[in-house]
Design a binder for these strands. Structure first.
Length: 887
RNA sequence: GCCCGGAUGGCGAAACUGGCAGACGCAGCGGACUUAAAAUCCGCAGAUCCGAAAGGGUUGUGGGGGUUCGAAUCCCCCUCCGGGCACCA
């Protein structure tokens, strides 16, 4: 039989993947047909529900919990999902092969607004719409071949999940961690609901980028995340396996500021305001401690620069400060002016640039006393003073704060320097105001003059505390988490309102509070549940009288704050989970998702874990050991979106090139933490590569498998081709194994596999000539299949079987590399003269320095280049290079 | 304004600790096979200059300076792009 001829005709007839043109002369065994292979394996995998199941927590294997962020079931898988899950899947498969007991679950973040919008649009009930989408996306995920254990699947919109949201809420309520208060809330008219601070982006709704968020006063439920602000901040230091970027973002979000609170006493209410012009300048120093003139009303300010308090020349209050309200009540012109300031604030917020608001203010006509100096200073209202940070009031120190300086210039307020406007050692000169640096000395500051700023900060705060008008304090930017949503498709908040007993929690025995099924979704504002009498009308568990149910539902971020615990015990109907199972699986070893969740989801999750720990449910302080933020998938330089028309559908890619090529390209095109520019030609390239591998194994795999029995009895004398092949194999295994342990640069792993295949195909003549022992060939092909398995599982399973392997590929041990076999025996050493490459010499890998030097100097090119030059110095870096410095 | 990233051929990228810049792939060019095309296989390939060629020179990692025998990599300054925060007192 003419082997060459067979090969030729087969190669000639190999069709492109997706090429549907009939080709009668095809040799089917040599043609890579991903559609056929993948369909066959998908069917086989589907028939094995335990294929990806984790072993119980009694397993002797070390555990590994790898998790990808659960998706919202929009109905279509997009490329970002494919990339995210391909990373997790490669890792899960690798860890299985490394012998770990792997938990690799998937679920659905299934509550949320789109279901209600879809209901309005298509007249489909949210539940039905959501469950249909889940089915569709699950089908797509299985088509890609992700290794999820569907037996642990969770769906947050089903009562067996959300009842535990309610249960947790009740536990928090019992501990005062859930409370109700009236507050100004962010309201999105399009969503017709409240948004958390975290969901407001540039003053607009996170879902409706064009929609300005309004402010409304509503009674809302809050979770006291601020109780954990300090711990959330402190524990960031422990999260060494998290991207620095994510930790920084959280640190900024928590926004801890150390400073002091100081109370300024208001001058007697009844004092007649002087005329405004005079008032502005009214900073005449009164005798110290003229508190007799005070009236007992105090205005607390928060400052990080108490050391500059002798330079305070006015107080600035937020337009919404309670005292301002009182002042306005007896002063109509002031009320009008304050209303104007409020309006400016509102407009700025709606324009999304609170930071750029033009500063305006108004003098209230009142004065307050500086508790340190006793000085009488005017009280103003400023539109740049935030209501909900600190105390909503500040002391204005124009000389040492940029904002205060700007304001004082505009309104001609006194600017008094109390910090030497230069550092020790700086040349004297005109002060550059405002001077905000803290590494200087106080002046004009009573007994504190001459002290360093930072020293004075501590001493002055302590002084204030001793004398009862202040104290050191810490302020956080983080605010409590408002979770009430005036929506239907969410977890009902398990609370009742009884006329007699007030706010009453639903007893545990009555959980879950079920979301009613038949409800008409309309565009009216307010909670849809309020329009369902059967839902609203309830009985008070305390008095048995009539009660009204809470009709708001929970923010969906509640659902995703603890879902990963439920995967460990998904069907438990007595508790959210068995704590022993959690103790085994937690913390999550590796969490993978988009950086867009760096703040919201990841901070809520950390908070929830700490609450659960304090409830005695879990022992871990943090949910996630290592976090990975993958880059976005973009195309033509922009994020994929319908409006830009640059969306690539995974379905189309898979139909054309196969799932293996699609997911492998998503790992090859860029390192996983960087943005990935999708180029379809690249997918075609991967597909070609897989076809090469397939063809090679179809041709030579059989021979290798027959020789398995002879494995280990390789001849003592190996050919150069054999040695080169083995060397490349072991270098590749080493490289890839190191990447998994380190940076996860799967792009270079795949490149390494390509190089291995290039080496293999280059050696094809020698292999065909029998110069490579079958045992070696079998080892190479077997290892190649294993290396490929995490990236292209369908093809790997197919090849595994073709190689005659009978064990489960998923649990086949990851190949081990042998340093001795990976070692090069000859290495190339670049030789530079004055840092410029002049020659490359080839030496024995273990040649001594003298031998290498001699060899370099003996090189013709080097000898020629050195002629007539004086060698000043010779640098030899073993195994790296030689640099000869000449004159 | 502040805090993170990033910038390397025509393109995606590689070079992990300062040591041959451009691995691997895409697109391209040349060749083999073919009646032809596709597919496949082999080869070339940063730019520029000299040379018929073999080969060689110069230059080159956003820009400018510096440290070093040697810099994509370290230091200083600047530009541009992406992201986060933003009157947080």
């Amino acid at each position: 039989m003419s082997m060459a001829k067979t090969e030729k005709s087969a190669a000639a007839s190999a069709a492109a993947p997706g090429d549907t043109s009939p080709n009668g002369s095809a040799a089917p065994e040599l043609r890579y047909n991903p559609a056929e292979i993948e369909a066959r394996w998908a069917e086989r995998w589907a028939a094995q529900p335990d294929l990806y199941a984790a072993e119980p927590h009694s397993s002797p294997r070390p555990k590994y919990y790898v998790l990808e962020m659960l998706p919202y079931p929009s109905g279509v898988l997009h490329m970002g999902h494919v990339r995210n899950y391909s990373i997790g899947d490669a890792l899960a498969r690798y860890m299985w092969m490394q012998g770990y007991n792997v938990l690799h679950p998937m679920g659905w973040d299934a509550f949320g607004l789109p279901a209600e919008n879809a209901a309005l649009k298509n007249n489909t009930p949210p539940r039905q719409w959501t469950l249909q989408n889940i089915a569709a996306m699950k089908r797509q995920m299985n088509r890609v071949g992700f290794s999820y254990d569907w037996q642990t699947e969770i769906t947050t919109c089903l009562p067996d999940y959300y009842r535990w949201n309610q249960w947790f809420f009740l536990r928090m309520f019992e501990r005062g961690l859930a409370y109700r208060k009236k507050s100004k809330v962010n309201w999105c008219p399009q969503c017709a609901t409240v948004l958390a601070n975290e969901q407001v982006v540039n003053g607009c709704c996170w879902r409706h980028e064009e929609q300005t968020v309004e402010q409304r006063d509503l009674e809302q439920w809050f979770l006291r995340i601020t109780n954990y602000a300090q711990e959330l901040l402190d524990d960031l230091a422990k999260l060494e396996g998290w991207p620095e970027k994510v930790r920084t973002m959280q640190r900024n979000w928590i926004g801890r500021s150390e400073g002091a609170e100081v109370a300024f006493e208001l001058e007697d209410w009844s004092a007649v305001p002087e005329d405004e012009e005079k008032a502005r300048k009214g900073t005449a120093i009164l005798p110290p401690r003229t508190v007799a003139k005070g009236m007992g009303t105090k205005i607390a300010v928060f400052t990080t620069r108490i050391d500059t308090i002798y330079g305070a020349t006015s107080l600035q209050l937020s337009p919404e400060h309670p005292i301002v309200r009182q002042m306005c009540a007896m002063n109509a012109p002031l009320e009008e002016a304050v209303a104007a300031l409020l309006e400016q604030q509102r407009k700025a917020r709606e324009a999304g640039d609170v930071g750029a608001i033009e500063k305006h203010g108004v003098f209230t006509g009142h004065y307050a006393f500086n508790p340190f100096s006793g000085e009488r200073i005017p009280v103003w209202v400023g539109n740049y003073i935030l209501t909900d940070y600190g105390t909503g009031a500040i002391m204005s120190v124009p000389a040492h704060d940029e904002r205060d300086y700007e304001f004082a210039k505009k309104y001609d307020l006194e600017i008094r320097v109390v910090v030497l406007p230069r550092r020790p050692g700086d040349p004297e000169g005109e002060p550059m105001l405002p001077f905000t640096a803290e590494d200087s000395l106080l002046i004009n500051s009573g007994d504190f003059s001459g002290q360093g700023c930072q020293e004075a900060q501590h001493k002055m705060a302590a002084f204030a505390q001793e004398h009862g008008f202040g104290k050191p304090t810490v302020t956080f930017r983080l605010k409590d988490w408002g979770i009430s949503r005036q929506r239907y498709w969410g977890t009902p908040i398990p609370m009742l309102y009884c006329e007699k007993d007030g706010i009453v929690p639903v007893p545990d025995s009555e959980l879950p509070v079920l979301l009613p099924g038949n409800i008409e979704i309309t565009q009216q504002g307010g909670s849809p549940l309020a329009r369902v009498p059967d839902f609203v009308n309830a009985t008070c568990p305390k008095c048995g009288g009539p009660a009204r149910r809470e009709t708001d539902t929970m923010d969906t971020f509640v659902d995703s704050s603890w879902y990963f615990y439920r995967y460990c015990d998904p069907r438990n109907d007595r508790a959210p989970f068995d704590s022993e199972k959690i103790a085994y699986w937690f913390p999550i070893d590796q969490y993978i998702g988009g950086v867009e969740h760096a703040i919201l989801h990841l901070i809520y999750s950390r908070f929830w874990t700490k609450v659960m720990r304090d409830l005695g449910l879990v022992r871990n302080d943090e949910p996630v050991e290592r976090q990975f933020a993958q880059g976005m998938v973009i195309r033509n330089g922009a994020k994929m979106s319908k409006s830009k028309g640059n969306v690539v559908s995974p379905d189309e890619m898979i139909a054309h090139y196969g799932a293996d090529a699609t997911r492998m390209y998503s790992l090859f095109a860029a390192p996983p933490d960087r943005d990935l520019d999708w180029q379809e030609d690249g997918v075609a390239g991967i597909s070609r590569f897989l076809a090469r591998v397939y063809r090679f194994l179809m041709k030579h795999g059989g021979r290798g498998s027959e020789a398995r029995a002879a494995h280990g009895s390789a001849p003592a004398q190996v050919s150069a081709a054999t040695q080169a092949l083995q060397r490349k194999l072991h270098q590749t295994i080493r490289k890839i194994t190191q990447e998994y342990a380190g940076r996860w640069h799967f792009n270079t792993c795949i490149a390494a596999v390509m190089e291995l295949v290039n080496t293999l195909t280059a050696a094809e003549p020698q292999i065909a000539a029998g110069e490579v022992p079958d045992a070696v060939l079998a080892d190479v092909l077997r290892s190649l299949t294993l290396l490929l398995a995490p990236f292209a599982p369908y093809l790997a399973f197919e090849l595994w079987e073709h190689l005659g392997q009978t064990g489960n590929l998923l649990r086949a041990p990851w190949p081990k590399f042998d340093e001795a076999l990976a070692k090069e025996d000859q290495i190339e050493i670049p030789v530079q003269i004055n840092g410029k490459l002049r020659a490359v010499i080839c030496v024995d890998a273990d040649a001594g320095e003298d031998a290498v030097r001699d060899s370099a100097l003996a090189s013709e090119k080097i000898a020629a280049a050195l002629a007539g030059k004086e060698v000043v110095r010779l640098i030899l870096v073993p195994r790296k290079l030689i640099n000869i410095v000449v004159r």
